[in-house]
Design a protein around this nucleic acid. Sequence first.
DNA 1: TCTAGGACCTCAAGCCACTTGAGATGCAAG
DNA 2: CTTGCATCTCAAGTGGCTTGAGGTCCTAGA
Lengths: 155, 155
Amino acid sequence: MQTTSQVPEPVRIGELSEQTGCSVPTIRYYEEIGLIPPARRRSSGHRVYDASAARQLGFVRRCRDFGFTLEQIRLLASLSRDPRRDCAEARDLAQEHLKGVRAKMLELMALERTLARFIDACDQTCAGGCAPDCTLFRDLAPPEAAVPKPSGCCA
Amino acid sequence: MQTTSQVPEPVRIGELSEQTGCSVPTIRYYEEIGLIPPARRRSSGHRVYDASAARQLGFVRRCRDFGFTLEQIRLLASLSRDPRRDCAEARDLAQEHLKGVRAKMLELMALERTLARFIDACDQTCAGGCAPDCTLFRDLAPPEAAVPKPSGCCA
DNA sequence: TCTAGGACCTCAAGCCACTTGAGATGCAAG
DNA sequence: CTTGCATCTCAAGTGGCTTGAGGTCCTAGA
């Protein structure tokens, strides 16, 4: 007697897509650019995937979620397969990426504060006037070109 | 006697580029997609810009810095010109954008924490082993596929 | 007046990471 | 046998530019 899940069934691309969260065209795209190896095919031409393919794609997907580029992922994947390479290479790559994430984070935080102030100013002083008079446009004008408009066009 | 800067001299695209921080091809691109009006031309075909063109482009540039898409900027620009439109439209657009910024910010913050933890873990336990054994790869594997590797391939 | 080299022109293609669409084929249920 | 979904391939589109090729214009110095 044999249990049903001893040998994992190969799945088609649709199910792999559900398992990994990558869309079907994305999976084909990853194959096309060589990020994942070409799938085995049925005689019909349909792709079939086993558990190891699912793990590989899952890894790619996770790395994408973490914001790595496809090239970085390619490199990470090759590192994860080559025992002659050093762990430090992977760590450095991640650290470099972390640096970028932090930079973007700080940038966004500054942006958020400024934007929130602009919206506040509009809420406090515009009071639903006509659009061209909105304080947002003064706030969004480049600083050096701080030429005050002569007067409100609607008031 | 006339002071030199009474009538602002029209500038060529290179100088406009320096004034606004947009690259020359970007300015041409904005013109091509109709985000800024077509420039006047000299008989030679060279574009010339006056102060108002510089203000317009400066506005676009600033909005880009704030992360608005070109389509949003197109809309903002039209709002800033049409007195029949309501200030609330501009504010809502900005608010919508702020929402997006906040979402991305939170996402990046979560990312940052996780990534930093992964790197820490690597630093603490990997100690410069061979790449495939790096804890980063275990950490980056999708959670459901948490199949432990049989053993280190190098140790 | 000639010339060198920069600034400008147009048009096309490339970048990243996909998505979308068209049109053909395979496959399983009713 | 039909219906309808899943899959296939190939091509083009997305955003926001950048890069390159190949040509013209303009200005400063000799």
